[in-house]
Structure formats: structure tokens, C-alpha cells
Design a protein around this nucleic acid. Structure first.
Length: 425
RNA sequence: GGAGAGGUGGCAGAGUGGUCGAAUGUACCUGACUCGAAAUCAGGCGUAGGUGCAAGCCUACCGUGGGUUCGAAUCCCACCCUCUCCGCCA
């Protein structure tokens, strides 16, 4: 959520930055809402103040045993207008809030302008793709090795799920373990285990609600609420600090969590229908930081570097891309994507997305810290995949394949694989 | 699933219709005393929003949502959550 004061004081600036995202801010609608709000609020608050004063006088008079009829009739005269004002305000504010909650974050100055993914800017390339004469894709490799089974997943659930077996299931677990150990051991993150079902407030806090409810798996629960399967660990982990006021010396907070992620709309456009690239359920190791505002840009570079380290240690070629203004997610001020080399697709594919949200999520969550002046101030939040485990598995299978269809185990993973060198059927 | 207790400020804990945004304690901040510290004493100390150049003033908030009333933390209704015990259970 943007700072309401920014819209009030500098609406043209906000509209201009949003236009970079391809979003047209309805400034006339905002100005109309704001005018109505201002009028209703001041008018209603004046009446409330009057009522409060009179009611206090009535209390004092009655306490002394004196007659309060004059005050009683005066406050009675307020009755209808006051109620009408309160009702109108109660009707207006949710509309105001919905309008505000539906506005995406402003892109940072350093974000390259652009309308879609073609405007993204490559920042660096790391590693050199291995020469593979006729690369097979992970579906062929994994199925032949008996470790990936899409047909059985269709039987027990439906499309866009997978069953893993044997050494490949273990490889999947090894990748997870390796990533968690790296981030906790070398990058200073604290491991957390969180719920995989969250309430609507948490989904609102990180920006998935109200705009993207259709992309979520929702679980009906009771009349008062429903729960959502997390689309990313970002949701429960960032919400750890929702409604909190943290002490300055506890910052920065750095958390890493391994969770499954559930996305309902993944693949609804018929993209990546084959294989594990786009699934309704996938595992991810997520990095989350809560930092002081003056340190968040430094933190984005650092956090992205932590994700890159995973790829480097796995010796997987990748490139780092700065997303352009039109391709960023709703809540982000700036995003780097890491794209891993997939030989069978002969291209780089997204495997991590690292973003600085500045105060956008913190404002929705009222997540603050006490600054040097002892005043509550909004935190900045960041997160990034470190990495998406399913896609990392795909990358390992495809990049480490051998001509005979077996797959070499990356050196760094061997301890996690019981010393296994090669995955064969 | 059954029975009971309870949700008030960072924490603890008063408050059952009227100057209550809320006593008191504790934590924290400032000052005094001290060579310094502890102890002690004095003062300060919620959040969000509105309005104003500012000082300030105003509104809302005592789990959530309704209701009664001139006036609700306090009374009524519904819901949510937490804790304890029993049952069931990985």
C-alpha cells in the first residue's frame, strides 16, 4: 500500500510512476473520493465532538443532581445528522481503502522502463553452458530413470502435479537441505518453520489479497473466515512481524524457510504444460529480510547475491535480470530475476525472484521498528527465492545429464546423496 | 467432540453505565543525588486518522462485528481466539 499522504500531496508524480507499470491511475476518481472523505470526516467528527462534550456535561449535572433537560434536547437534535454522517463515512471508507489497496507499488528510479518482459535488462551472466550434443529434457531423463512420474500424479490428483521416486526424490531433498544449510550457515539467516495455511489478513499483508484471490487455493473453514494455502513462504514469514514494533537493535531480521507453495492459476494460459516448470505444488527455499529503510537497497543486492551463491555452488550457468517497470509484481519496488540455463529449452528460465518492497508490505501489515528518535517507523521488507527447488532439480537433471541418460550428481550435493556420484536407473 | 476459565497499554494487572485513553506496578526515556553505578526522588512515556504555518485542538481504538443509551472497557446479541481438564488421535 502506498502512503496516502503521497497521493494527497503529489498525485501527478504517483500517476506518472504508475504509468511506467502500464497502469493508469484514475486521478479524477481519487480526487472525488478524497473530497468526499474530507467533507464527511470533518463534518462527522465535529458532530461527534459536540455530542461528547454535551454527554460529559449531562454526566456532571446528573452527578450533582441537577436538571440536564436542556443538554439532553440539544444532543437529541444532533441525532439523525450524526447517524447519517457516521453511516456515510462507514460506507465510504471501505471504498477508499479498496481503491488504495488496489494500487501497486511505485517502481524505484533504478528500474528500467518497459512494458513487458522484452524490456528487462540483463545485468550479468555467470558460467558457461556445457556442450551437450543432443540435450534431453528433464521429463525424458527423469521418466527414463524411473524418478519422475507425471501419469501417476494425474491419477491421484490431476495435471500439474508430480510424483518423485528414489534417487530423484532424494536429490530434491538434498537440494533443499543444501540450500538451508548454506543460508543458515554462511549467510546468517535464521531457519523458520511456518504454517502452510494462512488467514486473509496475512494474504493482505504481503499483497496477494484482495487483487489476486483467483490465483490462490482457498480452504473454506467457518463462517468467520477461510484459509489459504500459501503461494510462497513469503506470506507466513513476512507476516511474522505484522502488527509488531521491533527494537532497532534487532534489525536486520533475516529468515529462511523451506515450504511447499501452492498456485492455482499456474499454467492456466497453457504455458509450460510439459514437466515440472509450472506446477500447482512446488517446493521453495525462501529468503526474507526486514530492514531499516536506509539499508534496503543494499540488502536487495546482498539477498540476490545469496540466491546467486546457490547457483554458483551448484555450478549451474545463470543470468541476472533487472525486471523492467512493466514486468514487476504488484508489491515490488524493484526485482531481480535469476534465470538458470536449461539446455533442452536452449534458454534461460526463471529460478529465483528477489525483490525490495520498501514500505509497501510493511504499511499493509503495520510492521514497524522504533527509530533513533524512539518513534515507530515502517520497516522495509525484502524477499527472494533461494531457490525454487523444483526448477533447480530440473536444471540439475538437464545440465548434468550424460549421453547415456544418466545424471551426474553435482559435487556439492554428494554428501547429501550418501556419496552417490551418478543417478542411474 | 464435552466441560470450564478468559481476551484491557511492551509486560503484569485494576476497572460492571458518566470528566476513563483507561488506576497501579514494571519496563523504557529525561533530570536530580553519586567519582561512577545501584538504590532513591521528580518528570515523561500508546496507536491510527483528521485539522492547523505552528503550539495545539479534534475523532476513533479496551478480541471482532452488531445493538441499547444523551453517554459503553463496563449492559445485550452473534462470532473469533487463547488457556485448563476430559475424550479421540499422528
Amino acid at each position: 500500500m502506498l502512503d496516502i499522504q503521497l497521493l494527497r500531496t503529489n498525485l501527478p508524480f504517483v500517476a506518472e510512476r504508475l504509468a511506467l507499470r502500464g497502469m493508469t491511475l484514475d486521478t479524477a476518481a481519487f480526487e472525488a473520493l478524497e473530497a468526499e472523505r474530507k467533507h464527511l470526516q470533518t463534518q462527522t467528527q465535529d458532530m461527534q465532538a459536540k455530542r461528547n462534550t454535551l454527554s460529559k456535561q449531562i454526566g456532571i449535572l446528573k452527578g450533582k443532581g441537577e436538571d440536564a433537560a436542556a443538554e439532553m434536547s440539544e444532543v437529541a437534535g444532533l441525532g439523525d445528522a450524526l447517524k447519517a454522517g457516521e453511516t456515510a463515512l462507514a460506507e465510504l471508507m471501505p471504498r477508499f481503502d479498496t481503491f488504495l489497496a488496489g494500487i501497486p507499488n511505485l517502481p524505484h528510479e533504478s528500474v528500467p522502463p518497459g512494458n513487458d518482459e522484452t524490456g528487462n535488462v540483463e545485468v550479468l551472466r555467470w558460467g558457461k553452458p556445457r556442450a551437450i550434443a543432443v540435450p534431453r529434457d528433464h521429463v525424458d531423463l527423469g521418466t527414463a530413470l524411473g524418478g519422475l512420474d507425471f501419469d501417476t500424479a494425474v491419477k491421484i490428483t490431476g495435471s500439474r502435479f508430480v510424483v518423485m521416486k528414489g534417487a530423484i526424490a532424494r536429490l530434491h531433498r538434498a537440494l533443499t537441505q543444501f540450500m538451508l544449510d548454506l543460508h543458515t550457515g554462511e549467510h546468517g539467516y535464521t531457519e523458520v518453520y511456518t504454517p502452510y495455511l494462512v488467514n486473509a489478513e496475512s494474504m493482505f499483508g504481503t499483497g496477494q489479497l484482495p487483487k489476486f484471490e483467483g490465483e490462490q487455493f482457498m480452504v473454506p473453514r467457518n463462517d468467520a473466515g477461510k484459509l489459504y494455502l500459501i503461494p510462497t513462504a513469503e506470506v507466513p514469514v513476512t507476516n511474522l512481524v505484522r502488527g509488531e514494533i521491533l527494537a532497532l537493535e534487532t534489525l536486520p531480521l533475516k529468515f529462511v524457510a523451506h515450504t511447499p507453495c501452492f498456485r492455482s492459476e499456474a499454467g492456466s494460459y497453457g504455458k509450460d504444460t510439459r514437466g515440472m516448470i509450472r506446477q500447482h505444488q512446488f517446493d521453495k527455499v525462501e529468503l526474507v529480510q526486514m530492514v531499516r529503510p536506509d539499508q534496503s537497497w543494499e540488502a536487495l543486492e546482498e539477498l540476490t547475491g545469496h540466491a546467486e551463491t546457490v547457483l554458483q555452488k551448484l555450478e549451474l550457468p545463470y543470468r541476472k535480470v533487472a525486471l523492467c517497470s512493466g514486468d514487476m509484481g504488484f508489491s515490488a519496488a524493484k526485482t531481480y530475476d535469476l534465470e538458470v540455463w536449461l539446455p533442452a529449452q536452449n534458454t534461460y528460465r526463471e529460478i529465483s525472484s528477489c525483490s525490495n518492497f520498501e514500505s509497501f508490505q510493511a504499511r499493509r501489515m503495520q510492521a514497524r521498528f522504533r527509530n533513533e528518535k524512539n518513534k515507530p517507523e515502517l520497516l522495509h521488507t525484502l524477499n527472494g527465492s533461494g531457490l525454487a527447488v523444483g526448477r533447480t532439480l530440473v536444471a540439475v537433471l538437464e545440465n548434468y545429464q550424460r549421453p547415456d541418460g544418466t545424471v551426474e550428481v553435482p559435487a556439492i550435493l554428494k554428501p547429501y546423496m550418501g556419496g552417490l556420484d551418478v543417478i542411474a536407473s
